[in-house]
């Protein structure tokens, strides 16, 4: 298990370094950054001055190592647009996005796993079809529309929940629900498929032959084996939620990383873009690592070899 952990972590670090390189190269491919920063009306001297000021006159390799070293220590320079340290921007906004993502995936798992189990245990009955229908509707609903409906009903009609901002935990309830809707169908279907598979397996027949209780058969023996793909996909879905919550962050006026990414891209704010790209990549890498470790905990066969 220790060797497994070490190998997975080393692999994750390698991937992170690769992404670091790509994040750097991609922004350089966008053209001469000095011209972009200086703007369309700048004179040649201004561009030259900017090039020197930002160190863009140095060889690319030096620029890369300089940037990479700073990035590794958490220094992404200053944002052109916000006139603030990029690290400060991220520090302000990351908690919002992380909270939202964790609430979203939490709601999704709490809803999807029991529904998936229920559908699997009643395979091909009306219960199964009803659950499938709910999932399909969930997938088909545009998230901004669902967000507006929730705001109208719970926010304005009933006045139970705040409709915008990040002041308290209540602010995260509706965005979390909306965000979870995109993940529920996939997680539910995976749970259902995994459970159907597990319930028809030989070891479940053995568990029944041992006279174990229904809950032990379903939750201890079947779910443990059905959970692995669910864990992997949950990690991916959480990644999506953290990176792709722009619409929801906009609708609910939550200033998170998704919103920051959208702003910085549209404003050509390349230090921020670089940092955000790198941040998303690192989040994915960490999530994948967590999923791998969780799966190894669930399945002893993965720990060997």
């Amino acid at each position: 298990m220790l060797l497994f952990l070490f190998r997975r972590t080393a692999l994750a670090v390698l991937v992170a370094l690769t992404v670091l390189t790509f994040a750097f190269v991609l922004t350089r491919l966008a053209g001469d950054l000095a011209i972009v920063i200086a703007g369309p009306e700048a004179r040649a001297e201004d561009v030259e001055a900017i090039r020197r000021a930002y160190g863009l006159d140095r060889p690319v390799v030096i620029q890369f190592f300089d940037w990479a070293w700073r990035a590794a220590t958490g220094d992404f320079g200053e944002s052109f647009f916000f006139r603030e340290r990029v690290s400060t921007l991220i520090r302000q906004r990351l908690p919002v996005t992380l909270t939202l993502g964790v609430v979203g995936i939490g709601i999704a798992l709490v809803v999807a796993i029991p529904l998936g189990i229920l559908a699997a245990l009643h395979e091909n009955t009306w219960i199964d079809r009803a659950v499938g229908l709910v999932a399909m509707v969930g997938q088909a609903l545009p998230s901004f529309w669902l967000a507006l409906l929730l705001m109208l009903f719970f926010g304005l009609q009933l006045g139970w929940l705040p409709i915008s901002g990040t002041g308290s935990w209540e602010h995260y309830v509706m965005p979390g629900i909306v965000l979870s809707f995109s993940a529920i169908p996939a997680l539910m279907r995976l749970t259902r498929a995994g459970m159907i598979d597990a319930m028809s397996s030989d070891y479940i027949r053995t568990a029944r032959a041992k006279g174990l209780s229904r809950s032990s058969i379903v939750l201890k023996h079947a779910l443990r084996n059905a959970a692995m793909p669910v864990v992997s996909i949950s990690a991916v879905q959480l990644g999506f939620m953290l990176g792709g919550s722009i619409v929801i962050e906009t609708v609910f006026a939550l200033h998170g990383i998704g919103f920051l990414a959208w702003e910085s891209i549209s404003k050509n704010d390349f230090p921020t873009v670089q940092a955000v790209v790198l941040l998303f990549a690192v989040i994915y890498i960490v999530l994948t690592l967590i999923a791998d470790v969780a799966n190894a905990v669930l399945d002893p066969r993965l720990r060997a070899s």
Binding site: K210, G211, R214
Partner: peptide, 27 residues
């Protein structure tokens, strides 16, 4: 079913044709 499950594994037990897959791989 629940009364029967009290007998199974206790007073009547069964083994199967497929030893490779009859044990739960996770435990």
């Amino acid at each position: 079913e629940s009364q029967l499950s009290r007998l199974r594994g206790d007073r009547m037990a069964m083994i199967f044709q497929e030893p490779m897959t009859s044990l739960n791989p996770a435990y």
